[in-house]
Design a protein around this nucleic acid. Structure first.
Lengths: 199, 199
DNA sequence: ATTGTTGGCCAACGACTGTTGACAACAGTA
DNA sequence: TACTGTTGTCAACAGTCGTTGGCCAACAAT
């Protein structure tokens, strides 16, 4: 289609580790983008606003990330950090561990909020969300459930409860859900997730 | 602030029941708005597109509904139809009844999807969602739980699982969740909701 | 036939969007 | 010094948005 216009083809190798003078700007853009996307969603987060937050010109955003879609893709790549959650620990406490992990992971991380906000109104982004949950939650389920199809179903059920909590707590901000302490979340969601895992 | 410019102050009472010639247009706008808002979300659903769907001029939308916000408010008012769900039936089957009710209610109704899509990126709309769930789910919970504060907490938990299912099934379209039959949803979510209700 | 009201279309406004290209400031290299 | 490629600024483009006001046809009541 067209050549890569997002990135200078020849990399400046003056610095020993391949860093560049513009790396700071790149990082500032990405940080501002994450915040804006998570607060405003994809459509209302404008390139101009992101550039203003990063204190640079809007055209720099285009130069370094090509277009708005690619900028979002760069800002919304993230990790559920689920690996190692299952090894060597009692299987019947996994639901509680998972609930605890979700709270710890989501609190203070805006990347996932940006992804969720955008996925709701943007189908390509929804595809990204499907992929992330399928590839990162899938292996965990297959380790406790041999049947491939059933594992997928259980992963879907877990996603529904986890994302439902995230939605009502961090995005819609239902007061009783916001008020839940981490211990309460573990107490209530733990058994639910446990049943979806092994019940 | 300013007078009501959304509606002619003097109503044409020529027709016996107070209907007007423009009622058809009004309804067409509302139907098109519901569909567009549910499919595209608040920002991307443009007045022009809604008007085109309804086969009328964009300015008519403004005349009848004032502005985009008011149009959405008119399109997103809806009913969870929860009254009568608890009377005279065994309390320990209420979770299953609720799960069954959710599926029946959401399947084919785009109003609630419009509300949810818009609420995620629009704070005033999120407030509407909070209000609807608080006022319609609250009474049900108070009928099974005397403690006011605990009832609110349980309502929040139920919302998290219900909205999580709606999100993953109807909006993000996670394949395993979409594939669930109504019976499977009742089988899996029923006990969860039952525990949030009375556990 | 006359008015006044309602329903509807049309063209345009001002604001804002993503995006582009020209150009200046600066770095390192020869 | 002059040259080259990177970083950044500025102004503008083409398009879309919500919204407004003017205009005309259909209709109602006088």
């Amino acid at each position: 289609m067209h050549v890569n216009t997002c990135w200078p083809t020849v990399v400046d190798m003056t610095s020993p580790s391949g860093t560049r003078r513009s790396d700071g700007t790149r990082a500032a853009i990405l940080a501002a983008a994450r915040q804006r996307f998570s607060e405003d969603g994809y459509e209302r987060a404008t390139i101009r606003a992101i550039a203003a937050d990063a204190d640079i010109d809007p055209s720099m955003v285009m130069r370094y990330y090509g277009n708005k879609e690619k900028l979002f893709a760069a800002a919304a790549e993230f990790n559920l950090e689920l690996t190692g959650l299952e090894d060597g620990r009692p299987l019947d406490e996994m639901g509680a561990r998972l609930a605890s992990h979700v709270i710890r992971l989501w609190d203070g991380d805006e990347t996932l909020m940006a992804l969720l906000r955008a996925a709701v109104t943007n189908d390509p982004v929804a595809e990204t969300a499907r992929r992330i949950f399928a590839t990162q939650l899938g292996p965990v389920l297959r380790s406790v459930c041999p049947n491939e199809e059933e594992a997928a179903k259980r992963a879907g059920l877990i996603s529904s409860q986890v994302l439902g909590l995230v939605l009502t707590r961090y995005i819609l901000k239902f007061p009783p859900v916001v008020a839940l302490t981490k211990e309460e979340v573990v107490h209530w969601l733990g058994p639910t997730l446990q049943r979806y895992l092994t019940g």
